[in-house]
Amino acid sequence: MSELSVEDRERFENLVLPHVDAAFNLARWLLRGRFDAEDVAQEALLRACRFFGGFNGGDARAWLLQIVRNTCYTWLEKNRPMELSTEFDEELHQQTSATPETLAIIADDHKRLTLALETLPPRFREVLVLRELEGCSYKEIATITSIPIGTVMSSLSRARRQLYSALTNSSQGACP
């Protein structure tokens, strides 16, 4: 914090710190775990603080989430590079959501949805989390993820279709 002037520090507290929940939620879903998400969200906030001078006063949430996302991807590349290279595998997805073992574990809808969401590839998961959980507009998602708005829309559409089919498969398995 010592790099920031008193005014900047106050601005940072007022503009950026209220979005700690959003930062944690995105990190939690990108990393699929609370434990790692705490570390990475904290790291992202420290980076945000360091780069706060470069913040031009627009949407502070989108600005912070952009940093959170980049920090998450850097962390994934270093710690779980396989996750980023795996493309969505329709068959694998159905298997993981529908085996009796997993169905026994996923007793309630919260668990079932969490599993379905976590099985989506990161690029699909993030647009869905930003849209459905964070309530971001297409434009905000495009800013945060640095992908064109058209790609945001097609990813969102595919993500929804895959989530929907994963849920239909798993519920069919649960109630034969």
Partner: peptide, 21 residues
């Protein structure tokens, strides 16, 4: 929405951030 998947920052993260900032 009903499944309440949104996960707000944990108390321990809040403490860590408060301690840091």
């Amino acid at each position: 929405h009903l499944a309440q998947l949104y996960e707000p920052a944990t108390a321990s993260l809040r403490w860590r951030i408060n301690a840091r900032f």
